[in-house]
Design a binder for these strands. Structure first.
Length: 306
DNA sequence: GGCCAGGCTAGCA
DNA sequence: TGCTAGCATGGC
């Protein structure tokens, strides 16, 4: 397999295992991506321009950072778009060095920073998928959410075998827009959730919602733009900014996972309320790294098996 | 069987 | 503006 060229350089510390260990909301039988830890390699199908592309890339450790390189040749015309995609996926603008420096004075959280040293936040820059994924995850447990997502993908997306694993390609907004509510109802989606997802897909497909434009907006502008849409609340937008847009400074204060993590790590006894999380973040000066702190806390929760 | 799950809306004061 | 019942279903 011929390696073409470096696609991207990312300065700062990096841990492949910690970065790629994060729990993805897919089932055992349907994978977001195949991760080969022994090769520092990851493989996933992505929408790039008009047609799907198999992203098969490896991380190479450099003296002062990492570089990402493709394991199969990519046409010149796709190269720029691919770099753009990876830039977004890895949140290259977020400096891990700056984050760690910011955390030095926080004794409680600095332990997590050391435990998961080198964990970058990688996201899914396909904002339609990220949004729908998040809507599916509203108010249901992660396992059931993963089951629902798999059913949607098998209904409207594509499943491609990759060396024995099922890798999927999430349906485009255009495809979901053509579904009827009853089709999702039949897959155990609630009536409301079916409406939220299909209606959102129709807005994206007909151009009323321009997801690409979100990248250039401030956090507040994004909230103002999306909150009026039915089925999209503050938590969902925060998840979009966390899991899609790779914003470093989002605090999902109402999130049940974050509240549980704080409960365990800080030993607060009972589950802290949304307002408690806000006060804590303010007192400890989490800004402008609320997202990163949240991901480290989620990771902490995963490792202790909650 | 009962409570909870990485919430949101509509309706009411 | 702020509160809350109701939603709907699976996991444990």
């Amino acid at each position: 397999m011929e390696k073409t060229r470096n696609l991207l350089f990312i300065p700062g510390p990096f841990s492949f295992d910690h970065t790629f260990q994060r729990h993805h909301r897919t089932t055992d039988t349907l994978k977001t991506m195949v991760v080969k830890h022994e090769e520092n390699r990851f493989i996933k199908w992505i929408h790039l321009g008009d047609e799907p592309l198999l992203l098969d890339a490896s991380i190479r450790y450099e003296e002062d950072g990492i570089s990402i390189e493709m394991n199969k040749s990519v046409s010149e015309t796709k190269m720029e778009a691919l770099q753009h995609y990876l830039h977004r996926m890895f949140g290259v603008g977020n400096s891990l060095d700056a984050f760690y420096e910011h955390m030095q004075t926080n004794k409680k959280l600095n332990g997590l920073v050391e435990q998961f040293h080198g964990m970058r936040v990688i996201t899914n820059p396909d904002l339609f998928e990220t949004t729908v994924d998040t809507i599916i995850g509203q108010q249901v447990n992660l396992k059931f959410a993963a089951t629902l997502k798999e059913r949607l993908v098998r209904l409207a997306g594509e499943v491609k075998d990759y060396e024995g694993d099922d890798l999927y390609l999430f349906p485009t907004a255009e495809k979901v827009a053509k579904l009827e509510y009853e089709e999702l109802r039949a897959l155990s989606f609630s009536q409301r959730k079916s409406e939220y997802i299909i209606d959102f897909a129709r807005l994206v497909a007909n151009g009323e919602v321009d997801l690409e434009a979100l990248w250039a907006m401030s956090n507040q502008e994004i909230i103002d733009r999306l909150l009026p849409l039915r089925g999209i609340g503050v938590w969902t937008i925060e998840c979009l900014m966390l899991f899609g847009l790779n914003r470093p400074d989002v605090l999902p204060a109402a999130d049940i996972g974050l509240r549980n993590a704080v409960k365990v790590l800080y030993g607060t006894g009972e589950q802290p309320k949304t307002e408690d999380i806000r006060l804590l973040a303010e007192r400890e000066h989490w800004n402008p790294w609320e997202s990163y702190i949240t991901f480290y806390l989620w990771q902490y929760l995963n490792t202790i098996g909650k």
